[in-house]
């Protein structure tokens, strides 16, 4: 009984970590810029590839993951400067442009690096509770997901960048009339979102096969989380991930993985019907 409960909690924590880590970059770029980034999965892929390359070059894994995240962030800033900011206030064009970036990135990687790349093994060992055995690395990922939420909260509420970024999304013209260079804020925010995607890629790289299309493995979960959560990273993404993780791990445990996914998609449909602006839009209703 207790073992079963622990197994469920582990699955739940694992699903939560995956949802939070894969969605936070997408949520930041959507929530703080209003941009729907269809290249999200490719920033994840970039983080994974750079992480594995750095690890194989001899860097310790945590440092390699930091490199992956940083690389994705820098590429994000460059793409924002070069393309995204020219499409400011043109959301549909931005979607098409990021989709284009996504296609170029997957095909480019395929051409340059081939259809697959040797990975690194999952670090740390495993522990067992009763008859079940659990990966220690997965526990680390859960802890990182929680720390990441806390860290992002501090970043957006305690730092100068965070305050200016929130001012910029809330009343853009007023932020610039108060001396805020909103272009720089947008570049940094896009870079931050891309770096978070890269971080997700780096963290999960040791657990999966590296292929140019690996980003798609994260896309469904990350979009589901952001759609359910709405535009606020903290009032949206975090509670959405909790609820979705519960549904996904419950359905997976009872009926298998396919039903886990079906559960997620059904939740999205229900949530959009009841709360068109997601959980955070609903929580913040009437507060604008």
């Amino acid at each position: 009984m207790l073992e079963g409960l622990f197994a469920f909690l582990f699955q739940f924590g694992d699903a939560f970590a995956f949802l939070v880590l894969s969605a936070s970059g997408l949520a930041i770029i959507f929530g703080m810029m209003g941009v729907i980034n269809l290249a999200h999965g490719e920033f994840i892929m970039c983080g994974a590839y750079v992480t594995v390359t750095a690890a194989q070059a001899g860097l310790p894994l945590p440092l390699a993951i930091a490199c992956g995240s940083l690389a994705a962030g820098i590429i994000g800033i460059i793409l924002e400067r070069a393309i995204i900011n020219r499409l400011f206030n043109r959301p549909l064009d931005t979607i098409v442009a990021t989709w284009g970036i996504s296609l170029i990135a997957t095909q480019g990687t395929l051409i340059l690096l081939g259809s697959t790349m040797p990975g690194v093994g999952t670090p740390l060992g495993s522990f067992s509770v009763g008859d079940y055995s659990f990966s220690e690395y997965r526990v680390v990922l859960m802890a990182i997901a929680v720390l990441l939420m806390g860290g992002l909260y501090l970043l957006f509420h305690r730092t100068r960048y965070g305050i200016l970024a929130r001012a910029t999304i809330q009343v853009p013209h007023m932020a610039s009339a108060l001396g805020v260079n909103t272009k720089v804020v947008h570049s940094l925010t896009f870079g931050l979102g891309a770096a978070m995607a890269g971080l997700a890629g780096g963290l999960y790289a040791p657990t999966m096969t590296l292929v140019p299309t690996m980003g798609t493995a994260f896309i469904v979960e990350s979009f589901v989380t952001v759609v359910v959560g709405g535009a606020d990273v903290f009032l949206g993404t975090a509670p959405a991930a909790l609820i979705l993780a519960f549904i996904k791990s419950g359905m997976t445990g009872l009926y298998g993985q396919l039903f886990g996914l079906i559960g997620l998609l059904l939740t999205v449909i229900v949530v959009i019907r009841i709360m068109p602006r997601g959980l955070s839009g609903w929580l913040l209703r009437g507060r604008e």
Partner: peptide, 18 residues
């Protein structure tokens, strides 16, 4: 045009940019 979802103190902090 105050920043509605930021605190009074945070609103004032944005003014420091000037």
């Amino acid at each position: 045009d105050v920043f509605p979802r930021m605190t009074v103190a945070e609103n004032l902090a944005v003014g420091e940019t000037l």
